[in-house]
Amino acid sequence: MTPERFQDLIASLTATLEGQPLDAALAERLNREYPAGSPVYEALFDACRQAVAAGWMCSRENDGIRWGRVIRHGAATHGFSVDVVDMKDLAGPHHVHPNGEIDLVMPILDDGSPGGGARFDGQGPGWKVYGPGSAHRPTVTGGRALVLYLLPQGAIEFSRAAA
């Protein structure tokens, strides 16, 4: 998996998201059309695991969280940036989503293979959507997970709030 191939894979997804309101209906749609086990979910999961293993994804580490901005927002990804984190049983830094956030939750075992019961903010394998202006302290419980974040216009604001 190369960064270019990964961007092409993401672009095929973000093309279906462009202009959509980030709300509960979008989360329902994503979980219906691209649920865990579907070809799209599995392709993204496999691509992330390959990229992490190759060392270009989640290449930074801070306070037990491996992370990285993989793609800056732009026309190629229909205005979305892409970040991926690797977290195990911890809470990340509080932040606000000025334009919302779309998350793909991918539980993994400690050896990096798919599996386990990890949940991200209560969501198991699948999609979680936060609307514009929402905020949280991203939390993984029950194990380890890769979480892919799609941020419209790359907008995220970190704060010191305890959420």
Rank of each mutant, 00 (worst) to 15 (best):
V85A: 14
G55S: 04
E157W: 00
E157T: 10
T139A: 08
E101P: 01
P132G: 15
S113C: 05
V70W: 09
A155W: 02
E42N: 14
A54N: 13
H94V: 15
A145D: 06
L148I: 15
P132V: 11
R60V: 04
D46V: 00
V84A: 11
S59T: 05
V129Q: 04
M106T: 07
R66Y: 12
F45K: 11
G55Q: 01
P114K: 01
R72S: 14
E157Q: 13
G100M: 11
F120A: 05
R137H: 08
G19Y: 02
M1V: 06
F120V: 03
T16M: 15
M1W: 11
W56E: 01
H95P: 06
A91M: 13
G64T: 08
G142Y: 00
R72W: 12
A76F: 08
G92E: 07
L151H: 13
F45R: 15
I65H: 03
A47H: 04
E33A: 15
G92V: 00
A15Q: 07
H97M: 03
D46F: 00
G116P: 05
S12D: 13
R69W: 03
G79I: 06
Y149L: 02
A27I: 08
A155D: 13
I156V: 15
G55E: 02
A163I: 04
D83Q: 06
G100D: 02
R144W: 06
H73Y: 11
V82T: 14
A43L: 10
V84F: 11
G112Y: 06
R72L: 10
L13G: 08
T16I: 07
D63V: 06
E61H: 03
L30T: 06
I156F: 08
M57W: 05
W56M: 01
V70D: 09
S12E: 13
W127Q: 02
Q153C: 08
S159E: 14
R160W: 06
K88G: 10
Y149F: 14
C48I: 15
V70M: 14
T14S: 07
S134M: 12
D111C: 10
G64Q: 08
V40M: 15
R32D: 14
Q123C: 12
E4Q: 15
G126C: 07
L148C: 07
S38H: 06
H73F: 11
D86T: 03
Q20W: 06
R32M: 09
V82P: 01
G122K: 00
P107G: 10
E18W: 09
S113N: 13
S12Y: 03
A53G: 12
R60E: 13
V84N: 02
H95C: 10
H94G: 09
G92D: 13
L9K: 05
A51D: 01
V85D: 14
A25I: 04
I108P: 03
I156M: 15
V52N: 13
R66Q: 14
R29W: 12
L104Y: 09
V129S: 03
D46L: 00
A145K: 09
P98D: 10
P21S: 09
K128F: 07
A47S: 13
H97R: 01
P132N: 10
R66N: 14
D103F: 09
V40R: 15
P21R: 12
